[in-house]
Each structure stands twice: as structure tokens, then as C-alpha cells.
């Protein structure tokens, strides 16, 4: 339960309010699974859950992408190399990459939702031969707010990965799609009878994405989403992150839609 002090190795500004921290892990053998998170502690200010956005095959750094949305994340994004932050974890469930082996994999994300999916993308690309078509559909607010823009460009250049990007608002130079991320689903190559989908983004976006995938023949046992609630302990004790019958920190954050039942659609849960 105690945060372990970890030294900040580097800070990369991704967007105006979004930063990636690379931390020195507390010891040898630090491992995580794609989709897991840590509780990051800004000393003297507070602790927040942050998704791990690094490469799961690289244990030399803890990589976390943080958007500044409040006092704790403001403090975490203001750190400099050499500073220390507290780390607990990794915690939570992970993207079931194994369940997609031998099938098409559809990865649908929006905004900062790309960060918790990045480790899964890197993992499946590391073992590319195990999967059929892999498609990444990404929606952002504007062309200037594409997370990991350089890496997206790299991925778009690959012949074994289909990447489609849309923005809610275009600008004078944007030549790509404008519209919501669900509008890209019809352009992706996948077999709805067997494909697996990983979805991460704002809940409204995820609900519309689930509806669209179900209407195209997906079944909810092959749909996996990442949920977010206000976490405190990170290990299923305090109940802060309760979502219906689940604790998001322990039973999630990655859920199979069929396990969630109507929880996704229930008001004020």
C-alpha cells in the first residue's frame, strides 16, 4: 500500500496539457500487462490512477502518460528529470491480447484513450504473426490534439496495420476524415463474426462504439472496454471506484462487455 519513490528519468510534452513521464522502476523485474495502471503520488499533494503507456517488453522504465486535469495531475506534469514521484502498482486487469490471436483485432480509441491502448498495440505488433487484420481507429478533438502523433505516422506507414484517424473539428490543412470515430468502423477490415475489439475513450464514445459494433454483428463477449472511476486504494478495499457490482480498480479497468451486462447503460452508476 505504500508508494515507492521513483526517480523521473524524462518528461515529454505530448500535447498542451498532456505529458509522458519516464520513471526509473523501483528495482529489477518491474513488469506490467497492457491496460494496467499505477497509483502515482505527487508528494504532499495526492495520488491518482494513471494508465501505463509504455512498451510491456521494456522493463527498464515505467512510462505513464498524464493529462493535467486537477491539482494532482497538475503537480505530476510539472515534475522535472531528477524529481521523485511515488508509485504503487501495477494494478488492475489487462487487455486480453491472447483472445485475439488467430482473429482480426479492432482497436478503437479516442483522445487520451490511446495511452492505455499503446502497450497493447506494441505487444500485438511485437507478435504480429499471431493475428489476422489489425486495425486502429483513432478519434481526436482536432488535428493538433493527436496523441503520439509521430508514432501514429509510423504506424500508418506499416503494411501490416491499418490506421484510420478522424477529428471532430478539421482545420485549413487537415485532409483526413472529419467526424466521430464510429464513422470509421465501416471502413475497417474485420470479420464481425469472429473479430475482437478493444475500446477505450470517453464513456459516451464507448457506448456509441459498442452500439455500432453490435449492429454490425459483433457479440459482446468479444468487446472489451476500459472503464474509469474515481479510485483511491487501487486494490478493491475502499469502494471509491464502485461501478454497480464491480470495483473498477480490481475487477477492471478492462472489462469484457458481456460481463458488465447493463452496467454500461445504467444511469448514475
Amino acid at each position: 500500500m505504500h508508494p515507492v519513490p521513483c526517480r523521473v528519468h524524462s518528461v515529454v510534452r505530448e500535447l498542451e496539457d498532456t505529458f509522458t513521464l519516464e520513471l526509473d522502476p523501483p528495482g529489477d523485474g518491474w513488469e506490467f500487462a497492457p491496460g494496467q495502471f499505477t497509483m502515482l503520488y505527487a508528494f504532499g499533494i495526492g495520488e491518482v490512477p494513471i494508465s501505463i503507456s509504455g512498451d510491456p517488453s521494456d522493463s527498464s522504465r515505467i512510462v505513464q502518460t498524464i493529462r493535467a486535469v486537477g491539482p494532482v495531475t497538475d503537480a505530476l506534469t510539472a515534475v522535472s528529470p531528477g524529481d521523485f514521484v511515488g508509485v504503487r502498482g501495477p494494478y488492475g486487469t489487462s487487455w486480453p491480447t491472447g483472445s485475439a490471436e488467430g482473429r482480426d483485432l479492432l482497436i478503437i480509441t479516442g483522445g487520451i484513450g490511446l495511452a492505455p491502448l499503446r502497450p497493447a498495440i506494441l505487444e500485438v505488433l511485437d507478435h504480429r504473426d499471431r493475428y489476422d487484420n489489425i486495425t486502429l481507429l483513432y478519434g481526436a478533438r482536432s488535428p493538433g490534439e493527436l496523441l503520439f502523433a509521430e508514432e501514429l505516422q509510423e504506424w500508418r506507414g506499416r503494411f501490416d496495420l491499418e490506421v484510420l484517424i478522424t477529428v471532430d473539428r478539421g482545420d485549413q490543412v487537415w485532409r483526413g476524415p472529419v467526424g466521430v470515430v464510429t464513422s470509421l468502423i465501416g471502413r475497417a477490415s474485420f470479420d464481425p463474426e469472429s473479430a475482437v475489439a478493444f475500446v477505450c475513450g470517453p464513456e459516451i464514445m464507448m457506448r456509441f462504439t459498442i452500439q455500432e459494433l453490435l449492429s454490425r454483428g459483433f457479440t459482446d463477449d468479444r468487446l472489451h472496454i476500459s472503464m474509469e472511476r474515481n479510485m483511491k486504494c487501487g486494490i478493491g478495499l475502499c469502494g471509491h471506484c464502485q461501478l454497480g457490482p464491480f470495483f473498477v480498480c480490481k475487477d477492471g479497468p478492462i472489462f469484457r462487455c458481456s460481463e458488465m451486462g447493463d452496467t454500461c447503460w445504467t444511469r448514475e452508476v
Binding site: D17, A68, V69, G110, R141, D168, S183, P202, M205
Partner: peptide, 16 residues
């Protein structure tokens, strides 16, 4: 219309 409504909601904006 549903798409435009989601665009109007600006779901990717920073929740301050």
C-alpha cells in the same frame, strides 16, 4: 444527427 451531437459534446475536451 447522432454523430453531430457527439461532436457538439466535445467529449475529448479537458474535464476541468
Amino acid at each position: 444527427m447522432q454523430s453531430i451531437r457527439i461532436q457538439l459534446l466535445d467529449v475529448y475536451s479537458t474535464p476541468r
